[in-house]
Design a protein around this nucleic acid. Structure first.
Lengths: 229, 229
DNA sequence: AATATAGTGTGTATTTTTTACACTAAGTAA
DNA sequence: TTACTTAGTGTAAAAAATACACACTATATT
């Protein structure tokens, strides 16, 4: 990320917008900086790309160092390189978004020196961000809004087994609008990529909902056709 | 200058896929390299990002140096940074696509040392490309295929005044499939972003078609709503 | 045992959008 | 005048999107 002093002509970094869903809210992971510039500000996690890493590997590493998680769905979406975006010199940064199912807080790890702490904060109430990170975040949200309409990325935010209501909830949070329950179900089921399980939700104090699983095989077979919300 | 971190000296470049439409075919601009590596191979035009340029400025400059044109529609779409993509070391490259209306060959200029010559080649018959440029091109085409469905980019490939048949032709070439004439017209007109002119096509040896113009104002007013093909 | 509570799960009618499809009109060239 | 070439147009059928309300079921409470 931005903690390096770039006297060299161009420093190349990766910044990540980690979207997490805890069953209730959509959150992103922010770190509180411990170094100038922007000491004490909230910022997106990021780091410098290593010499022998591919870009995707680098993004995975950054995420692993921060959360201890591997195999997370990530995608590159935009490069930000305004010469003035970093007060200490030229830093070109490549933005990734990642999608994570949150369960408790077990994912967070002790983190590197440039950050005091890291926190999952709901996207409905974000603080001012360091550098041009607001712009990076905005573009990331916009990106997943588009993506979720055509690609099966919602499942990355949910546990392996989920209810249709939970799935609808994810769509509503990402798209930022209410959806009709009956129409949503009709449509999502019609894609034919969900497997209905012989299992019900547990631990709720009301009628338990049927659990579903995303069926990757069926989805793979569907290629050529696009799903569309 | 002392190098604190060895991986900071990665080279950062921009490569461009310039799509051009001459009324008949969709073409891209390729240069024939005059230097190793890949001497005598065809490659996408590109260059190093200057220290005080924004990324978009850099892309515009590269395009200007090559064609003498300014104000061309360009868009960044992906960063390629495999450690092995360049035989002589780490080069991270950011890909842009650009859309250009071709008229005659006046656009091409004498070009820089690393290229022997530049040529517009039809996308239906491309040669082997240097480096990972085939991958970059593929992704660029894919990108404009998606883009043309939702954004008014087709007009960038056409002269200011155009016929509906020409417009349809652009869509067909980009999407790679035939469209129904009546349905195409119905739909494109229903978006309400075309202005029908009191003017006809000239110099054709058959019935002249009505000319249209893309109406940016109407399009701007339409924001929120999305056009969709 | 009865009742309250909270979320699950389902169908239909209407409107809108998409698709498939073929002929006449207009202008030019011979 | 005729032949040629492209422009321009409408409709019916199918598919998809929308709007909308109530009974069911599991648990918690009394």
């Amino acid at each position: 990320m931005e903690q390096i002093l770039p006297h060299l002509d161009s420093v190349f970094s990766i910044d990540c917008v980690l979207f997490g869903f805890d069953g209730k809210e959509l959150k992103i992971l922010l770190i509180e900086r411990n170094e100038e510039p922007f000491k004490d500000w909230w910022a997106l996690p990021g780091n410098i790309v290593g010499p022998d890493e591919s870009l995707d590997q680098s993004a995975s590493r950054i995420l692993y160092e921060l959360t201890g998680l591997r195999g997370i769905y990530m995608e590159q979406y935009y490069a930000f390189g305004d010469p003035n975006r970093h007060p200490q010199g030229r830093v070109i940064t490549l933005a990734y978004y990642a999608l994570i199912r949150l369960g408790g807080d077990k994912e967070l790890r002790p983190i590197s020196t440039y950050a005091k702490r890291a926190n999952w904060l709901p996207i409905t109430d974000l603080p001012k961000l360091a550098f041009d990170h607001q712009k990076i975040y905005d573009k990331g949200l916009e990106k997943i809004k588009r993506r979720i309409k055509h690609q099966p990325i919602a499942f990355e935010l949910l546990p392996e087994k989920f209810t249709l209501t939970q799935l609808q909830h994810v769509y509503e949070l990402v798209l930022g609008k209410k959806l009709d329950k009956r129409n949503f179900r009709k449509k999502i089921v019609s894609f034919g990529v969900l497997k209905e399980l012989d299992e019900k939700q547990k631990g709720v104090s009301y009628r338990a909902a049927t659990l579903y699983r995303f069926d990757k095989r069926k989805y793979a077979k569907l290629f050529g056709k696009e799903i569309s919300f």
